[in-house]
Computed example of a mutant assay.
Amino acid sequence: MDIAKALAAIDRLCSGTFPAEPTRTDTGPAGPGYRTAELATSEDFREDDGARREETAEQYECDRDGLGERLTERWGPPQVFSLYSVLARTTEGEAVAEPWGRLSGHVPDVQLWRARETGRWVALGVSQWDEEWPFQLLAIVTDVDPP
């Protein structure tokens, strides 16, 4: 992962507008009040015995933490926000505002900052939908408060 490119993508999300309807942009999913950047995507793990998956998970967490260090220099230490309770609430049928409801299905937790310049929330998380699917390092910028 190229940290300079990832920071530029986050800056672009922070300064950009949000779409009026859910859509897919050149950086990832977006909708009213949020935009996502898929900063890195691994290969899938259909032919893996588990070793490559574990190594990739560790690498993506390291990439998230390294990028997080740069954001900490800007905005101070992050909150670590678990999305487990959000997932439980959506599973029980509760409507949770996006992007939080959707994220909870594939991102267990996020590092979360409040950008001083815009007041928007900036979250970093590692996504993995299923054991065979690829990992993704995601940056999410939103004006929707965490639930």
Rank of each mutant, 00 (worst) to 15 (best):
E43F: 01
A40E: 15
Y60E: 14
Q59C: 08
G68E: 07
A37Q: 08
E38Q: 14
E47Y: 03
S42A: 07
E58V: 10
E47L: 02
R53M: 05
E47F: 00
R35I: 06
G66K: 06
E58C: 03
D63C: 07
G68C: 12
A40Q: 14
G68A: 12
E47M: 04
R46Q: 14
Q59M: 12
E54S: 11
F45S: 07
E55G: 02
D44N: 09
R64H: 12
L39W: 06
T36D: 07
G68T: 07
D63M: 07
R46H: 13
A40P: 10
A40H: 10
E55Y: 02
E61F: 10
D48Y: 00
E38I: 13
L39E: 13
T56S: 12
A37L: 06
L39R: 11
E58Y: 05
D63Y: 12
D63T: 08
P32E: 00
Y34P: 15
L67N: 11
T36A: 06
G66I: 14
A40N: 12
T41W: 01
A57L: 09
G33M: 05
A51I: 12
R52D: 14
T36C: 13
E38K: 11
A37V: 07
L39D: 14
F45T: 06
G33I: 04
E58M: 06
Y60M: 09
C62V: 15
R46I: 15
Q59K: 09
R64A: 14
R35P: 15
E55C: 00
D63K: 03
F45D: 09
D48M: 00
R52C: 04
E55A: 09
R64P: 05
R52K: 12
T56L: 02
D44I: 00
Y34C: 11
D65R: 09
G68L: 13
R53A: 04
L67H: 09
D44S: 08
E54Y: 07
C62L: 15
D49Y: 00
R53Q: 11
A40T: 10
R46D: 15
E43C: 05
S42V: 01
E55S: 05
F45V: 01
P32D: 01
